[in-house]
Design a protein around this nucleic acid. Structure first.
Lengths: 160, 160
DNA sequence: GCTTATTCATTAGCATACAAATGATTGTCG
DNA sequence: CGACAATCATTTGTATGCTAATGAATAAGC
C-alpha cells in the first residue's frame, strides 16, 4: 500500500499534483461574474422555452422590438441601442433578413447607411411575441418577491 | 412636397411601414433579460481588461479554479460544476490543453472517463490570477455601495 | 478645397453556448 | 447473464460576441 508521502513524491515526478488546493476566501460560486453568467444562462433557457418561435433568439427579439419602436433605423445605430457591436448586429440582421422579418433600403441622405424596417411578417411577429416576452420576464424574476424584484432591477441597472 | 398621408400610403404599397410603433408598457431596456445580458457583457469586458493574461477567458478561468479546488475531476463533472454543457467544456479544456495548463490521464476505475489536473504551469497561472480576479469582482460591483453589493449578490443567487 | 479623421457595413478569426447525434463504456433490472 | 438504460466524451451545426482589418462615404480641420 502506497503512503501519502510516497504518492505525493511520485506525482511530483510527473510534474503535476492532483491534490485539492482550494484558495481560502475565493469561492467561484460567490463571484458576481459567475453568478451573472449563470443568471443570464437561465434567462436564455426560459426565453427559448417561452417565446413561442423556436428560431427567435433573445438578441433577434431585441433587434425586432427596437426597429418596431423606431420605425426605421440604420444597422450600426440599432447595434448601439441594443448593445451589439457592428459585427454582431450584422449577423443578427442577416438572419432576420433571411427569414423575411426585416427589409433594407438605402438612406438617401447618407450613402454609407442602409436603413432597416420591419416587413409585414416582422410586424406581425413582433406584435405576437410581446405577450410571451412579458411572461418570460415574469418567470425569470419569479424566485423573487415584488419588493425584491424592484430592488434587484434597480441594482442591476446600476451595473450597466 | 409630400404630405404625411401620401407618404404613409406609398409605404403601405411597399408592404412595410417605417412609422414608429412603440409598445405601451414594454420597454426593452427595463427587461431583466436585457439587463442581465448587458451586465454580463460589462463584466466580461472588465475581466479581459484586468485578468492579466490576454488568452484567459472567464470560462477558462472558472475551469482552472475548479480543477485547482478539486485536484482532479472528470470533464463532464467539471462542466456540471462550472455550468457548461459537455460540448462547451470540451472546447474549453481543449484550449487549456493546447496551452499546457491542464493534463489528462485515464480513470482506472471507469474507462469512459478522462481525469483532468493542473500542470505546473496551470497551477502557477491559477495562483497568479487570483489577485486580479478579486479586483475584477470588486470593479464589477464598484457602482454599488457595500450594503447594495450584499443585497445584489443575495438576490442574484436566488435567480440561479 | 484638401487632407485627415470618423463613421458605416462587411469580413475573417476565435471563443463561448446549446441541441442533436454518435460510439464506447458502465449500470440496472428482470 | 443479457437486454436496456444511462453516462462519458466527441463531433456537427447554428447563434451570439469580440477584435482587427477592410473599403466606401462623410465630417472636420486647417
Amino acid at each position: 500500500m502506497k503512503t501519502g508521502v510516497v504518492s505525493i513524491a511520485m506525482r511530483e515526478q510527473d510534474g503535476a499534483d492532483p491534490a485539492p488546493d482550494p484558495t481560502p476566501g475565493y469561492v467561484l460560486e460567490h463571484q458576481v461574474g459567475h453568478l451573472l453568467r449563470r443568471a443570464h444562462q437561465r434567462h436564455t433557457s426560459i426565453f427559448q422555452e417561452g417565446i413561442g418561435d423556436s428560431q427567435l433568439t433573445p438578441t433577434q427579439f431585441a433587434a425586432l422590438m427596437k426597429i418596431k419602436d423606431l420605425g426605421q433605423v440604420s444597422q450600426n445605430q440599432l447595434g448601439r441601442l441594443t448593445a451589439m457591436d457592428p459585427a454582431t448586429i450584422q449577423g443578427v440582421i442577416q438572419r432576420l433578413l433571411v427569414r423575411g422579418l426585416v427589409e433594407r433600403y438605402p438612406d438617401a441622405s447618407d450613402r454609407r447607411c442602409t436603413l432597416l424596417r420591419l416587413s409585414p411578417a416582422g410586424k406581425q411577429l413582433a406584435t405576437s411575441v410581446i405577450g410571451p416576452a412579458r411572461a418570460i420576464s415574469e418567470q425569470t424574476l419569479s424566485p423573487l418577491g415584488e419588493a425584491e424584484r424592484a430592488t434587484f432591477l434597480d441594482l442591476l441597472r446600476k451595473l450597466i
